[in-house]
Structures are given as C-alpha cells and as structure tokens.
Design a protein around this nucleic acid. Structure first.
Lengths: 218, 218
DNA sequence: ATTACTATGTCACGAGTAT
DNA sequence: TATACTCGTGACATAGTAA
C-alpha cells in the first residue's frame, strides 16, 4: 500500500471519517495534507478508485467516509506502531466475566480440537469456556492480539458438520495458565473465550460480572 | 514531514532500530519498502540528511539506528492513530503511589500557581501532590495525554526565582475530581503528580505502594 | 463558491555502472 | 559482495481554467 494513500486516509480519519460521512472539500483536504486543491482532488479520486473511501457528491459539498478496506488499512499501520512502541511481550486485557452462550463448551469438547489443544497448549482443557466481555478501551488490544501469530488450531469435518479453524493465544489469568481462543475469521467482537485446565469459575471463585485481568503472551 | 520518510522510519523501527543499531543493507531496506536498492540507498541518505537516523558505515555492512528526532516523529504518528482508534474521551492510567520528593508540594503552594489552579480547574488544591509511578505498559498513554491540549498553567518569576510553565489535565481518582500536572517540556518520565482539593492519602486511605487507577480527560 | 480537466514543470525512481 | 553516482524516463504536483 502506498504511503501517500494511508497518509490521506489518516487525516480523513482524524476528522472522524471512520464513524460517519464527513464534509470535506478538496481545498480543506489539501490544507490538511499540505498540497494544492487540485492534487487533493486527484488524491480523492485515487482513493475512490482503490475503494478506500466512498463519497456522497452533493451539489455544493462532498461528504467522504472510509470504507471497511480503508479502516483495515489504517488498523494495520496502527498494529505496526503498537508492535514498535508496546515492546512488552504480554498484553493485559481487562473485562468482566459473562454468562456466554454455552456454545464454546460444546465446540472445544470435540476430540478434533481437544487433541490439538493438548499438543499445542500443553494442557487438556476443562470442558467449557469462560467468556469475558473485554472493556471498550481495551478493544484495540484485541486487534493487536489478532495480528500476533499464536497457535493455529486446525478445523475439521465430523459427521458432515464443519468445525472451523481457530487461533489460540497462551495467556495467564491470576497466574494460572490458560489460553484465549479466537475464530480464524476476524469477528471484531469484544467477547473472548478462555480455555483452561481447571474450572475457572470454581478455582478462582469468580462469577458473572466480576472484573478480571488476563495477560496474553504475544 | 514527508510520509515517505516516516514510512521508511517505521520499517526500520520494526527491525528494532529504535533500541540499537540494526544491520540493514540498502537492498534489504529496498525489499522492505518495495523499491530498488538504488532508491533505498538514496532514502537512507535523505534520512541521514534530515537527522532522522544515524549510521555506522562499516567496511562490509552498515548499521542504522533512529535518532531521537526520528523516534519523536514516529511517536507523533502513533499518537494520531491512538486518537483515531481510542475514541473514548478518557484515558485510564494504572500505577502505584510513590513517596515523591516533596518538591511538587513546594511548587504548587506558590500563589502564582494556586490562583491559576482555582481559576482553571475549579478547585483550590490541597498543599501537596500525590506522586504516581505509572505502569510501564501505560507509558504510551502519557504521550497521548501530552499531545492533548489540557489547561495551560503559566510560569512566573518571584523573588528572582523562575517558576516554569505547566499543563494540567483534569482527571478523576476513585471518582474524586483532581488533575495531573506535567511540566511544559516533555520529560519522558513515568511519574505523574496529582493535585486535588483533598488530602488524597487520607481521604482515600492510600499509601506508598498501593495500586491506583486515574481516569484522565482528554 | 465547488470539482476536476489539461498542460507544464519538477523530481523521484531505477538501470547501468563506478568505487 | 557492498554503497552510491549519473542520467533517461515517467510519475506526480500545480497553475490555469472549464463546468
């Protein structure tokens, strides 16, 4: 990706062009990018061509908004910066214990997953997962974790049913070894599932609504 | 600052060129930047010219390292990304209460400061500051706070002595209004000073070594 | 006021090559 | 092997201007 494009995208994003359309004339963008109105206009056309932004060209003023592709492009650069400046090899997530839908438990019990967990994480998980709703302010850390390699848990098919690929990241909760398991496809959710050798609710005496801290290795 | 320069700086930083010299041939940099060896060589000369990197040109291999100016340039872009993706209007700092040197208390008692605090923060500070050693993982948040406007507390001269300018950022500690006060010149320290209407150690029953959370408005 | 086309000038890129 | 020079080509920025 050309750095000229992300530079322009970043300036548009700073004007809140991620959440919604933002009124932005080519002159204003030119001022922000320290270039002429003509060049800014051309840059906008290029960004449109690359499908990094979409535009609502009204009679008098155009309104601009980043596409998902544009947002993803910026998130990738943001991840690079985090890798540069957050040198620590662990990321601390804060959140609260949630009921969850019990689904995770059903999935991880599948022998196709279990053997991989034992092999790649070094423990055989308790047959259930602990769901954590991660604090809004830590949502960015989830992207950072998603961009880390982790342990790949391969998918498989059993009795005609498909079980998808997942990525496990080794972690600790109150100094107990565990792992957070994320579906392969980025979900952009703020709920994570934790697998652990022990029954965490009982072992740590925690229940729904309790605040917890998870240290994820990256 | 040209986006081409920060793009190159970022790639060098990802190779750990912030902490120490990194062996990096012009061909390798060219590969990382998706450009020719010749252009990468030219880019290196430009970065040297702008004093964004320094180089140790050995007989066979050159070693490259970012200068402070180069690091600052990247930090500024990083702050922009944080402003984009950490949309919350408050930043939560974690840290532990520290003894401090008692200096802060002497400074803020000066009437030249006190009147400004009353006017700009809406309370008359208790005559002393609470020092917090901010967790290493939250160090980046301090940069983000420094890049926010805050309330400027002007310097003055009294009895031949100069009292410098400072920036106050409104904050809350356990839901009590307070403010963190930072010297104008970036110190890159991880200790912050908190001023508050009340004697925080007594009001909150906290002492040296206790963990606290401060929510700073930005 | 806008956006964006065309013409023109500048400079960035890379091939070839010297060191 | 390296780095980095010269130089031809073209991509990119801007001025002028149309719509």
């Amino acid at each position: 990706m050309d750095s000229k494009y992300t530079f322009a995208l970043r300036k548009i994003a700073l004007l809140r062009g991620i959440e919604d359309y933002v009124v932005l004339s080519s002159r204003e963008l030119g001022d922000a990018l320290e270039m002429s109105q003509q060049s800014a206009s051309k840059r906008i056309l290029e960004l449109l061509d690359e499908k990094l932004i979409i535009r609502d060209l009204g009679a008098r003023k155009q309104r601009i908004k980043l596409t998902q592709k544009g947002v993803d492009e910026l998130k990738q650069e943001y991840s690079e910066y985090r890798r540069i400046f957050e040198v620590s090899d662990q990321i601390t997530l804060h959140g609260v214990v949630s009921e969850g839908m019990g689904e995770g438990g059903y999935y991880i019990c599948q022998v196709g997953y279990m053997t991989q967990f034992e092999e790649k994480l070094g423990f055989r998980p308790f047959e259930g997962t602990l769901n954590i709703i991660v604090d809004r302010e830590d949502a960015g850390k989830l992207d950072l974790i998603r961009s880390a390699p982790g342990e790949t848990i391969y998918g498989f098919t059993q009795e005609g049913r498909t079980f998808g690929r997942a990525i496990a990241h080794k972690a600790k909760i109150r100094n107990i070894d565990c792992a957070i398991v994320m579906p392969d496809r980025s979900h952009y959710e703020n709920v994570i599932e934790i697998v652990c050798q022990y029954h965490l609710r009982r072992t740590l005496s925690i229940g729904n609504g309790d605040r917890v801290e998870i240290k994820v290795k990256v």
